[in-house]
Design a protein around this nucleic acid. Structure first.
Length: 423
RNA sequence: GUGGCUGUAGUUCAAUUGGCAGAGCGCCUGCCUGUGGCGCAGGAUGUUGCGGGUUCAAGUCCCGUCAGCCACCCCA
């Protein structure tokens, strides 16, 4: 029979690896908390319209990457490919905007896109993202970026580079689109098929194309910065000034364009040179208009999404944290019952205790298991100890020993372990 | 969705022109040593990713398929 395996592009996160995930998530909660951002959890699947309307009908994500199906009740369902539209949907559904002018949320969880898997790109992948709704100030854009940078710094991510651009407000985009379409039309025959299609559907996306022929044309196309409305120009300068004021280096990239339709004004991306082709750790921007697009008031928004797998790839290998405090070894068969009783008592006392004295494992096997566990403390139970009621807790790192009776063991061990944890 | 590279024990990797599937580490047992990253002796583990084909003979050659990786694409 064929071995059943995980679906292509999905993976198991195993013990020993999951601890690094905890670290990323814990740092997110902690750093985001400093900015007043609280967690929101939305369903993993939604009505497909959430993404068709939110992410945008013309995007590749919606057109060819969604896990979209009809359920048994004949509903059009999609496994979420990104986090922003569901947050906006929840924001509207629960009328979260009432009472507060600025709402800040982060989410954390799996996303699904049907793409060809590669390192740093999976069909089920994980994102941690932030959405700030109800603020139009450029300072909030800068705060969101500062928060992302702070988080990556705490995670010791390798060489993060912030790239920043503006795609203009509505007024800018209407004016710029005309100029851009005209410029592209002049050299349409030099563009690839995809770009000729984008020229009609979404001319801004032509900037994403990496084909040499298109690159040659792109070099000559007018950039949006030259068409910025006064308001958009002021906003972008506001973001840049705030970042400069907080000593955050930003590389202005006039051709940075995001692939989702809802971005307006500020867009940014943080890449890492440690990653190869899929080098984007995190991307985001402002999405004024999305809330209205999804049926709400005209509420502005700004946020980002990060790829957890990619952050993990760019993070240093953490030294393994011991998952056990005390490992108890039975010297012989006659010591096994006492060994297990001690383990039980240590656990009752709040310690992480482990033994390997099962089914006649010899001392050698137990000793190896103790080493594998990484437990800083070891206790051997043998006939001599039991006869004298004197047991030795031994710290492997420096051979420090504490001799205790059976009755004192849990309390003494708890004190020793706590002392170590706090030092 | 396109093109390419790679799949051998738990793991890292060998296996000459097609010729008996192996090693290190890890794992298990015994001996030894009262607290062993020791020593000695022994042991287990594979439909060589899967399915076909060529051949006296396939880990090796051919076809298909699945998976991973690289580039494109896309994006976080």
């Amino acid at each position: 029979m064929k071995q059943i395996q995980a679906i292509r592009g999905t993976q198991d996160i195993l013990p020993g690896e999951v601890e690094r995930w905890y670290r990323v998530e814990a740092a997110a909660r902690e750093v985001f908390g400093r900015y007043g951002v609280g967690e929101i959890r939305t369903p993993i699947f939604e009505d497909s319209q959430v993404f068709v309307k939110g992410t945008g009908e013309t995007t590749d994500v919606v057109q060819k990457e969604m896990y979209r199906f009809t359920d048994l009740g004949d509903n059009d369902i999609t496994l979420r490919p990104e986090g922003t539209p569901p947050v906006v949907r929840a924001y509207l559904q629960h009328k979260l905007g009432q009472g507060r002018s600025i709402d800040r949320y982060f989410y954390c969880g799996p996303m699904f896109r049907y793409e060809r898997p590669q390192k740093g790109r999976y069909r089920q992948f994980h994102q941690i993202g932030v959405e700030v709704l109800g603020a139009e100030s450029a300072r909030v854009d800068a705060e969101v970026i500062a928060m992302a940078m702070q988080w990556l710094a705490e995670l010791e991510v390798a060489s993060p580079t912030l790239k920043l651009n503006t795609v203009g407000d509505e007024e800018t985009r209407i004016a710029y689109r005309e100029i851009l379409v005209a410029a592209q039309a002049e050299r349409l025959d030099e563009l690839c098929g995809d770009c000729r299609a984008r020229h009609v559907s979404n001319p801004l996306r032509v900037f994403d194309c990496k084909k040499p022929g298109c690159q040659a044309v792109i070099e000559t196309l007018p950039v949006i910065q030259e068409s910025l409305s006064a308001a958009a120009d002021r906003h972008f300068n506001g973001v840049r000034e705030a970042l400069a004021d907080w000593d955050i280096q930003a590389e202005i990239d006039p051709r940075l364009v995001r692939g989702l339709d809802y971005y307006r004004q500020t867009v940014f991306e943080i890449t890492s040179s440690a990653l190869g082709a899929q080098d984007s750790l995190l991307g985001g921007g402002r999405y004024d208009g999305l809330v209205a697009q999804m049926g709400g008031e005209d509420v502005p928004g700004v946020g980002f999404a990060s790829g957890t797998e990619r952050i993990l790839l760019a993070m240093p290998e953490a030294p393994a944290e011991a998952a056990t405090d005390v490992f108890v070894i039975a010297f012989d068969e006659g010591s096994v019952d006492t060994t297990h009783r001690f383990v039980h008592e240590l656990r009752q006392a709040g310690l992480r205790a482990l033994t390997y004295a099962y089914g006649g494992r010899n001392k050698r096997a137990q000793s190896k298991a103790a080493r594998r566990s990484g437990a800083p403390w070891q206790l051997v139970v043998g006939p001599d100890e039991m006869a004298a009621d004197r047991y030795t807790l031994r710290r492997l790192a420096d051979n420090h020993e504490e001799v205790v009776s059976a009755g004192e063991l849990p309390a003494v061990a708890a004190r020793l372990v706590r002392h170590k944890a706090s030092s």
